[in-house]
Design a protein around this nucleic acid. Sequence first.
RNA 1: GCCCGGUUCGUCUAUCGGCUAGGACAGCCCCCUUUCACGGGGCAAAGACGGGUUCGAUUCCCGUACCGGGUACCA
Length: 509
Amino acid sequence: MSKKIRVRFAPSPTGGLHLGGVRTVLFNYLFAKKMGGDFILRIEDTDQTRFVEGAEQYIMDTLTWCGLTPDESPFTGGPYAPYRQSERKAIYRQYAERLIESGYAYYAFDTPAELEQMRNDFKTAENPSPQYNHRIREKMKNSLTLSASEVESLLTTGTPHVIRIKMPEHETITFTDMIRGEVSFQTAQVDDKVLLKADGMPTYHLAVVVDDYLMKISHAFRGEEWLPSAPVHILLWKYLGWENDMPEWAHLPLILKPDGHGKLSKRDGDRLGFPVFAMDWTDPKTGEKTIGFKERGFLPEAFVNLLALLGWNDGTDQEIFSMAELIEKFSIERVHKAGAKFDYEKAKWFNAEWIKQSSIFSLQSSIEKVLSDAGIQVDDKEKLAKVIALTKDRCTLLTDFVQQAGFFFKRSETIDLAAIQPKWDTAKKAFFTALITAYENVNHWEATELEKICKELATTHQLKPGELMLPLRIMLVGGKFGPGVFDIAAILGKEETVNRIQKVIALLQ
RNA sequence: GCCCGGUUCGUCUAUCGGCUAGGACAGCCCCCUUUCACGGGGCAAAGACGGGUUCGAUUCCCGUACCGGGUACCA
C-alpha cells in the first residue's frame, strides 16, 4: 500500500523559507523516503502568506538546493489539482456547509467590532482573552441564537459571515502523536474556531482537514505550535465522517532563539548576524534583502546535516550524516520533544567538516563561483584543483576561499608592508635579490626544493630563516595568512613568484 | 489568567533502573606550525526543586518552579 506523507507549511509572510520550515520539510522527506512513501508538499497561500511574486520559484529553488524535491509539484497540476487554496474555495465551502447541516458548525454574523466589544466586555483579570466558546456563543449573533428566518434573510442579503465549528461542551479528545505519544484536550477549553472566513477562504483548520482527506494523506508533520489546535482538526475528521482516514500526526519541536526566549525569527538573524533563510530572499514589496545559508557559503549537505541534528540523533556519537545515511538511520521516535536553541557556531562547524570531507571535484564549481563573485577569475582549472587541495581544510565557509585561495589567481590589492618595513634592511634586500636569481635557475619547481634553496641561501647570507619567512609570505600573499609559503610558491610558478618578490622589493625602497 | 507541551554541562545532545553521567560546539591550557588555520592531547563544565516507588533513581509516579507554545475572520 502506498503512503502519502506530506508536510504542509506556509512560507514566512514576506515569502522566505525559514530554518524551521526547511527542517519540517526535511524530517518529512526522511520519513517518507524511509517508509518508501510519496513525499508531498502543501503550501498555504492564504491571507498574509498569499504568495508574493517569485515565492513559488524561490521555494522550489530552495528545495532543489537542499535535495528535497517533492514527488508532486505543490503548485501545478497533479492528481489532486488544483493545489492553490484560492482555486479550491468552492470545495471548502461545500464541506463547511455540510458541517452546518449536520449541526457541527454554524453561521456567525458578528462584525469585527462586535467581536472586539465582546472581548472587552468579558475580559477579566483571570481571563484576559475571552474565547468565542460554548458559553459566549449564546450571547452572539449567529445561527444558533437567531431564528431560522432571520438567518435566511441575513444570508440572502449577503451579510458578511463566517462559519464556526460548534465545539462540544464537555468532551475529552485524545489522540496519539508519533513524537509525543498520547495527548488529550478538554473541548471546553477550546473555542469555536472560524472554519470559513467572510471572504470565502478557509482557515488553516478547515483546509488542512479537507485537503488531507481529498489528497489521501497518511502522515502529517508540522511544528509544535499547532498542537493546541489539534483537537479542532481531530473533531473535524470525525464530524466529516472521515475518522478512519485520519493521518498520523507528528508535532515537531521548535527551533528557538540562541539567546533570549522564543521561536527563532528572521529578525534574530539580522540582530545576531547569521542567516535564518536557506537562500537569499528579496521581498519584492519592500525590496528588503535577507541573506541565506547558501549565499553565506554553506554547502547544502552541511545545511541538511545541521538541520537534521537539531532535534534528532541516531543514539550514537556520529554527527556527520549524508542524506543517504539520514534516510537510512532516521526514525521519528528519536525526534525530541523539547525545542532546540539554534547555535550558529556549531552550524559553521558542520560546514567546515563537510568542506573537509568533500572531494576537490565536487567543490570546484561552487568555489569558482565564490571567487568570481569576489572579482577573481579562475583561468586554470588544474591550478584551481591544486589550490583547493591546499586550502580546503582551512575554510569554514565557502566564502573563506576568497581570502585563502584568491591570491593565487589575483595579486592582493593591499600588501601589508607595515609587517616587514620595520625590520627591512640592506642585508635582507640583498638576500631576496639573490633569492630571485636562485629561483630563476631552479629546474624542479616544487615546494621542498624551493624551501631547501631558500634555507641554504639564508645560511650563506648569515640570516636566520625565521626572519625571512614572514617577508616572503607578505611578498607572495599580501598578508599574514594562507598555507605554507613554499607550497604557495610552487603553485604560483616561477615567473609569478619572482615577479611578486621583485615588486615588493621595489615598494620597500 | 486558562490550556497544551517541555526541563542532563553555556549550547546541541547520549543514557531506554546500576553513573567514576559519555560525545560534539564554544571556552581555557599544551603540542604541532618560523603566518593564520587544520590537526593531536588535556582542563573546566550538567541531571530545576521537593516528595514518593525501588536494594538502587538522571531514568518510573506525583507536586512545585522555570521555559516554550496556544489562547485571531495568522499560519
